[in-house]
Measured scan of single mutants.
Amino acid sequence: MSIQHFRVALIPFFAAFCLPVFAHPETLVKVKDAEDQLGARVGYIELDLNSGKILESFRPEERFPMMSTFKVLLCGAVLSRVDAGQEQLGRRIHYSQNDLVEYSPVTEKHLTDGMTVRELCSAAITMSDNTAANLLLTTIGGPKELTAFLHNMGDHVTRLDRWEPELNEAIPNDERDTTMPAAMATTLRKLLTGELLTLASRQQLIDWMEADKVAGPLLRSALPAGWFIADKSGAGERGSRGIIAALGPDGKPSRIVVIYTTGSQATMDERNRQIAEIGASLIKHW
């Protein structure tokens, strides 16, 4: 067993022997301040990774656009098919120029040779490549099948209805392509620590998230040296922004954090800054 596999296998073990965790309302004060600064709703939840206990939450059962955070769930569904012998990570998928959609920095470079399922998941999570996500959605049967996968996990809230990039439209009061912070946090925890996926697939999923290259201005910008984070960000229309993450000190994750916002007129930089400040408060009061 590799060191990384050992780390993920012992996530519940280490967490069980940690000192009790206590909620700190100071972080919620910052979440509410972010709402004021952005002029928009902000949803927040913080779960203990081992027990699933909610440590703090704000608007945990209000719907927010998922945006690209759905790509972690998508690759979880792909990995479940791999575990069941219905898919192979090494299978190569070929596609054409007509398949390319807006923001496809990886797939646009491989029109000639195609990409493997493993490479597509890596591109979808680490670079948020939209064509990679659409190609992977095709392998599982489309958005409705991802929703069905989530329902089978016990998540009857999260739903995907459309493809990239239309799913980022974020129309107010439109339930399409949305989740709730509580539902997303619980589902992410199941994917990373539950028995739904094999140990190898859980490790692969967290490795992809740990290698995320496009979430630097968010929670990662607030992390002290030595902290662990595996995350996936999302951005959408109407001032929408979000991030889902597993993080913790001492090089291992111990909490799940989900943050979503929508309806702001603020710039992307300002949305990023507010999420980073929430992260800084979380870490300060850990």
Rank of each mutant, 00 (worst) to 15 (best):
H24F: 08
H24W: 04
E26W: 15
V31W: 05
D33N: 04
Q37I: 11
Q37N: 09
A40T: 10
R41S: 13
R41V: 13
V42T: 15
Y44K: 00
I45R: 00
E46R: 07
D48I: 09
S51P: 01
K53C: 15
I54P: 09
L55I: 15
S57D: 10
F58T: 00
F58Y: 00
R59C: 05
P60G: 07
E61H: 12
E61L: 04
E62T: 00
R63H: 14
R63M: 14
M66D: 00
M66W: 01
M66T: 01
M67N: 14
S68E: 00
K71D: 00
L73T: 12
L74K: 15
C75K: 15
C75T: 12
A77E: 00
V78T: 06
L79A: 01
D83Q: 09
D83F: 03
A84C: 03
G85R: 15
Q86D: 14
Q88M: 08
L89G: 03
H94A: 09
Q97D: 08
N98P: 00
N98A: 00
D99I: 10
D99S: 11
V101R: 09
E102W: 03
P105Y: 01
E108K: 14
K109M: 14
D113R: 00
M115C: 02
V117N: 00
R118G: 05
L120A: 00
C121T: 08
A123M: 15
A123D: 15
A124I: 11
A124E: 14
I125G: 01
S128G: 02
N130Q: 14
T131W: 08
A132D: 02
N134Y: 09
N134T: 05
L135F: 14
L137P: 15
L137D: 15
T139V: 08
I140V: 07
G142L: 08
L146I: 15
F149V: 04
L150G: 13
M153F: 04
H156R: 07
H156C: 03
T158H: 04
D161I: 03
W163T: 12
E164G: 01
P165V: 05
P165T: 10
I171V: 02
P172D: 09
N173D: 12
E175V: 14
E175F: 10
R176G: 10
R176H: 11
A185E: 14
T186Q: 11
T186N: 02
K190L: 15
L192E: 03
L199S: 09
L199M: 06
Q203T: 11
Q203P: 07
Q204P: 01
L205E: 03
I206M: 13
I206P: 11
M209H: 09
A211F: 04
A215M: 05
G216Y: 08
R220I: 04
S221G: 10
S221N: 03
L223C: 11
A225F: 03
A225S: 13
I229N: 08
D231G: 09
G234F: 07
G234Q: 05
E237W: 11
S240K: 08
R241P: 04
G242W: 02
G242Y: 03
G242Q: 11
I243E: 06
I243P: 02
I243S: 02
A245F: 09
A246T: 06
A246G: 05
A246S: 05
L247E: 03
D250L: 07
G251T: 11
K252N: 05
P253A: 10
P253E: 05
R255V: 09
V257P: 01
V257S: 05
V257A: 06
I259S: 08
Y260N: 12
Y260C: 05
T261Q: 10
T261K: 15
G263Q: 15
Q265S: 09
T267C: 10
T267H: 13
T267G: 12
M268A: 01
M268Q: 05
M268S: 03
D269N: 04
D269H: 12
N272I: 02
R273K: 03
E277I: 11
E277Q: 12
I278Y: 13
W286R: 02
W286I: 04
